[in-house]
Simulated assay, not measured.
Amino acid sequence: MIVRAVAGVIGAVVPDTGPVSSAPLDPLSRRIVGALQVDGRASWRRIAEVLGEPVRTVARRGAALLEDRTVQVVGLPNTSPTHIVRLRCRSGAVASVAAAVAARRDTIFVYAVGRAPEIVAEVMTPYDTLAGLVLDELPALDGVEEVRADPALLYFRTVAEWSPGLLSAEEGDALGAVASTEPFSPETAFELDEGEQRLLDALVADGRTPLQDIAELLGCSDATARRRVEQLLGRGALRIRAVVEPALLGLPVETLLWVRVHPARVEEVGKALVASPLVRYCAFVGGDGQLLVDVTTPDVDGLRSLLTDPAWAGGAERVGATPLLRAYKRGGVLVDPNR
């Protein structure tokens, strides 16, 4: 599938890395995925040491997971403001509209949800291109009847920070996991030089791009290439993420929540929500529902327990829950809708 660039989008955004496989994962494969979620650039030897498994077994299994795109390690850029876009479609047009929106380089996720026919997408685009996107480009898609865009104001968790508990705390620590419960702003002010932009582009396309290839790309030593990667990640301009379907990790019930909260309690409720490993994503968004939350549970009982958890539910004024029917894009990676 060819992904077309969007005029005015700054820097690399999301590549076309092919459809994600739907092959079921065995316990060891899930643990390898868990290790990649902690450190997507960790060597197979390092992962094997932490998991206590033979290096050859981990290398073979890990390479197979990447080769068939069951898991894809990509860079998620953080170089422009983000917005949540909701599209109401003509009946029967959801699939074609969602595919067109997912093919854009500026979309991060694209979901068809239970309030059919509706699509919810996260878009990274500068403010000076937002009007053209919302007023012209998206309404021009055949089947789109209404477009609404709300700014992402604060993130409590994105998929780049999500860890569903596949590793023990000790294993996560050994791989360098950094636990953070502090929300962060999506507002960015990064000015990348030419070399940094080339590096970002390479890691967006493949988060595991070898240091030797990066060094050749930048015309520097391996040590300098390593330092440049660490600097880019340390500045927050890029995060490395292992993208995988939640169902393959034993979490097949996926739901989007719109949580209305008094503005004074947004941070309290948001932090309480992300205390659960079942919450993949939680953002403070402008609009009627202050918090947009993506949750994945093993079954309906797990969803009910999460929805009634007094740790956060007591601070909510209203909760709307709608099933996520089909993902067309996750973490910048195209998903095969026919899986």
Score class of each variant (00 low, 15 high):
Arg157Ala: 02
Arg105Phe: 06
Ile119Lys: 02
Pro210Phe: 08
Leu192Cys: 09
Arg198Thr: 01
Leu217Phe: 04
Arg157Ser: 00
Glu118His: 11
Asp128Ala: 05
Ala152Trp: 07
Tyr111Pro: 01
Gln197Cys: 04
Ala189Tyr: 12
Ile119Ala: 04
Thr209Pro: 04
Ser221His: 08
Ala205Ser: 01
Ile214Ser: 03
Ile119Met: 02
Ala131Asp: 15
Ala112Gln: 12
Leu217Met: 04
Thr209Asn: 06
Pro139Arg: 04
Thr129Ala: 15
Gln212Arg: 15
Gly114Phe: 00
Thr129Glu: 15
Leu167Lys: 10
Ala179Leu: 12
Tyr155Thr: 00
Val134Gly: 12
Pro210Ile: 07
Ile119Cys: 00
Glu216Lys: 15
Asp193Cys: 10
Leu141Ile: 13
Gly165Trp: 07
Glu196Met: 11
Thr181Ala: 11
Leu141His: 04
Ile108Arg: 12
Arg148Gln: 12
Gly195Asn: 13
Glu191His: 14
Asp142Ala: 14
Val147Glu: 03
Glu216Trp: 10
Ala149Asn: 08
Asp206Ala: 02
Asp173Gln: 13
Ile108Leu: 15
Trp162Val: 01
Gly195His: 05
Thr181Ser: 09
Ser163Pro: 00
Val120Pro: 03
Thr209Trp: 04
Pro164Gln: 06
Asp142Val: 07
Asp173Phe: 01
Gln212Tyr: 07
Ala174Gln: 12
Ile108Val: 14
Val204Glu: 03
Ala121Arg: 08
Gly165Cys: 09
Pro164Ile: 02
Glu146His: 13
Ala205Lys: 09
Leu200His: 05
Ser221Gly: 09
Pro186Phe: 08
Pro151Asn: 05
Gly165Thr: 07
Ile214Glu: 05
Tyr155Phe: 11
Leu217Ile: 07
Asp128Val: 11
Val134Phe: 13
Ala131Lys: 15
Glu118Trp: 10
Glu182Met: 03
Met124Arg: 14
Leu211Tyr: 10
Phe184His: 10
Glu146Gly: 00
Asp142Gln: 13
Thr107Ser: 12
Thr125Val: 15
Leu200Phe: 01
Arg104Gln: 11
Pro139Gln: 02
Ala116Lys: 12
Gly132Ile: 05
Ile214Ala: 00
Glu216Leu: 14
Leu133Ile: 05
Ala152Asp: 13
Asp136Arg: 13
Pro210Glu: 04
Asp106Lys: 02
